[in-house]
Design a protein around this nucleic acid. Sequence first.
DNA 1: TTGTATGCAAAAACTTTGCATCCCA
DNA 2: TGGGATGCAAAGTTTTTGCATACAA
Lengths: 141, 141
Amino acid sequence: MDNSLHLAQSLRKAGLRLTPQRLAICSFLASTDQHPTAQMIYDQVRPQFPTLSLATVYNTLETLVQLGVINTLGGTGSEAERYDADTSPHVNLSCVSCQRVIDFPSQHLHALEDEVTSRSEYRLLGSRFLFFGLCPECQAT
Amino acid sequence: MDNSLHLAQSLRKAGLRLTPQRLAICSFLASTDQHPTAQMIYDQVRPQFPTLSLATVYNTLETLVQLGVINTLGGTGSEAERYDADTSPHVNLSCVSCQRVIDFPSQHLHALEDEVTSRSEYRLLGSRFLFFGLCPECQAT
DNA sequence: TTGTATGCAAAAACTTTGCATCCCA
DNA sequence: TGGGATGCAAAGTTTTTGCATACAA
């Protein structure tokens, strides 16, 4: 599935403009698994758009979050917000040493989501599942 | 279980000083279910300590997080970090409208934790489970 | 064309740090 | 008493906002 298209199309469906900047940000989000911060996106997309501004990155991310097509993970460590283009229920593993975040598919999340849906009165819009720990590489150090 | 004592004792066990400010912050954390931000703690504890500084609140929270006796939830919304004195595996439900966060005990988290422990190479140190949505009150509006 | 989106810069919000003083162990 | 903790203020980060211009639809 071309998730880049998915992100871009959700902008159009919402009646928003598909600018080159937004498209570049969507493409980057869809292509990476690094759960980037706004600054990381800015640094890596800017070469294609020398005048791209960080404000636009923040604005676009906020728009995509509002549309529900990307998630925020909350700061991991004491740094900036991280974004995840994968909104399907999944677990993220965050290394407290090297700061990297990886995905971890789990078989239990659907049951968890069903439980919350049936036993709470909340109308669910998104989720965030994070474990903190030391990744294999950092344990070796 | 007196969780306030638990927090305070973990400071002593770590060889750290149990100052009145730290005790007040621990007591407040243990007594509330509002998953407060540093500012919320400051506002509500300060009446007892007119000279309490926000820096001390941040320092103490950082210390407690390092000790592993409280968790951070990550900003919910676009605001500040929220803290949770309940480190047992549990789900938090965050209302995107009124910003309140409540606890939701789940039967599936132990299975999830076991799965991550056995199928990843990470040494786990903490976790964060959050659903975003509309609480019953805000749905009614 | 028309109003949304952008870029820039300034401001706001949040968090950390330096340092002199204080005080718990 | 001594070294960690505090309070204050200043600095550092991260994020948002105002406004004139540009441009997608």
